[in-house]
Design a protein around this nucleic acid. Structure first.
Lengths: 151, 151
DNA sequence: TTGCTCCTCACGTCACGTGAGGTGGC
DNA sequence: TTGCTCCTCACGTCACGTGAGGTGGC
């Protein structure tokens, strides 16, 4: 499932939030603030940290999220929307490290087409299910049965 | 998530295999034969049994699947294709029991529309992802970077 | 002192995958 | 005796959900 790792033309997808002029540590967010901003649970943020995706500073025991953490989270959530698993996202972030700073998702052409094919297959499955459900609804398969409503 | 349980017009979806003229016990299938016929793993069949979906006869320790088991399995797999969870399928089979013999899936109009809405939401998410991936592929977001290919 | 937010275990969920270790009949 | 098919535990996977029980600062 891993790509051959030696392809050249990489696509860098710049979905991360804007640089925002190097904020001071005081603008760092609490876990509750970040979760509200991105619409995820506290558990999700802690889980991503355990997986090594985000590494917020600590103020005592409490987590403090800075701009770089927000950008990473934005990238991760965007990749999830594109249908990638966390394992794949981990690889995509790792492959972008160094050259791009790890805030961007590096998709090769091959990875793009593979994901497109994967999603199109899913879409076909859904379309088939929808067609069948609509036939069921409009009575194509209907064979009305009586409930024991009366005596 | 459970429906109110009191709606009347039920749709009976008849996807189950044909009756096949009451086969003798000798035509009962082994687990390997049934798994091949439906393209599922042995583990899946044992798992469905543990969940109470199928109850094959036993010949010693070995499972023997009869016609009724095949019909049940066909119904379960069809419901899965329609995007229902095993918990939902369990309810759908139970609600059909007695009146229909449990081989058919009983979908109310409301269950149909709810599932249709659910799948359409999924489809929209996939369409959005596909659009973004195609933009990425065609270079809309491209910001080509160099790999350290040369010296 | 109460209430809020934060924390760390740690087990649960969903639908199976994947061995481990053992049995039965050709 | 070997090989095949079958069996029953039982832990692993994926992406978190959901308490339990405890701490810190206003």
């Amino acid at each position: 499932m891993r790509s051959d790792g030696g392809d050249c033309s990489e696509r860098t997808l710049a979905w991360a939030a804007e640089p925002a002029a190097s904020p001071a540590d005081e603008t760092a967010l609490t876990i509750a603030q970040l979760s509200r901003e991105f619409g995820v649970t506290l558990r999700t943020l802690r889980f991503y940290e355990a997986r090594g995706f985000i590494s917020p500073r600590r103020q005592g025991a409490a987590r403090r999220y800075r701009q770089a953490d927000r950008e990473r989270l934005a990238t991760i959530l965007k990749a999830k929307q594109l249908g990638f698993t966390l394992r794949e996202i981990s690889d995509l972030l790792a492959s972008g490290d160094g050259a791009t700073g790890g805030q961007r998702l590096n998709l090769s052409r091959q990875q793009c087409t593979e994901q497109i094919n994967f999603l199109e297959r899913q879409k076909r499955d859904i379309d088939n299910a929808l067609a069948e459900l609509r036939r069921a609804y409009t009575g194509h398969y209907v064979n009305a049965i009586e409930r024991e409503v009366d005596g």
